[in-house]
Amino acid sequence: MMILPPDDPRFATTLARGLSVLRAFRPTDDGLSNAEIAQRTGLPKSTVSRLTWTLGTLGYLTQSPRDDRFRPGPTLVAVGQVASASLSFLVPAQELMARLADETGALVVLAVRDGTRLVLIRTWRPARVSSIWLEVGQPVALRGFSSARAFVAAATPAELARVAAEFPASEAEPFGPMPQVRNRAGAELTARGFVFTPGGPDAAAPYNAVSVPFRGPNLPEPVVFTCGALPDAADAVRMETEIGPRLAEAVRSLERLTGQPSTLSRREA
Rank of each mutant, 00 (worst) to 15 (best):
L87F: 09
S64D: 02
G73I: 02
V108L: 14
D8Y: 15
E242V: 15
S262I: 06
V136N: 07
W53R: 07
S49R: 12
L110W: 13
E135R: 07
T28V: 09
L19F: 13
D114M: 12
A106G: 05
P5S: 15
P213T: 12
G216W: 14
A127Y: 04
Y60V: 04
G199C: 01
Q138S: 10
L230H: 02
F11I: 15
P139Y: 10
T75D: 03
R149K: 12
F194Q: 07
V224R: 02
P213D: 08
A101E: 05
T62R: 00
A236P: 00
L100N: 08
R215E: 08
A153Y: 00
A106F: 07
R267W: 03
V251H: 02
A35G: 09
D202G: 03
T54V: 09
L58V: 13
D114V: 07
A16N: 09
P74I: 00
P174F: 09
K45H: 13
D102V: 01
S46G: 10
S265F: 05
A269G: 08
S49K: 05
I121E: 11
E240N: 01
Q94T: 10
A191C: 00
P217D: 10
A98K: 09
E255F: 05
T13H: 15
K45N: 11
S130R: 12
R182D: 01
P217Y: 13
P217W: 15
E159K: 01
A229Q: 00
L120T: 12
A269Y: 01
M97W: 04
Q39F: 08
P139E: 05
L90R: 11
M239C: 02
L134V: 05
G216L: 14
K45T: 13
V129H: 00
L257G: 08
I132C: 05
P9H: 13
P126T: 05
L15Q: 13
R69Q: 02
I121H: 07
A250W: 12
A169Q: 10
E242W: 04
I243N: 02
R149Y: 06
G200W: 02
P261A: 06
D7H: 15
A85E: 05
R246W: 11
R149C: 02
L87Q: 09
G42S: 06
A187I: 07
R23Q: 13
P206S: 08
A204P: 06
A24Q: 13
A141H: 09
L43S: 11
Q81W: 06
G176W: 00
W124N: 02
L254A: 03
L87E: 08
R113W: 13
Q39T: 14
L118R: 03
L247E: 10
S86N: 10
P198G: 03
T104W: 11
V21T: 12
F89P: 13
G259R: 07
S46I: 03
P245T: 08
N208H: 14
V21F: 10
R117S: 11
P27I: 10
T258N: 06
P157S: 08
A93G: 08
T116S: 08
S131E: 11
T123E: 07
A158E: 09
V108A: 09
S49A: 12
P201S: 10
E268I: 04
R122H: 11
L87D: 05
L219Y: 12
N218A: 15
E173Y: 12
L160M: 02
G228T: 08
V79Q: 13
R192Y: 06
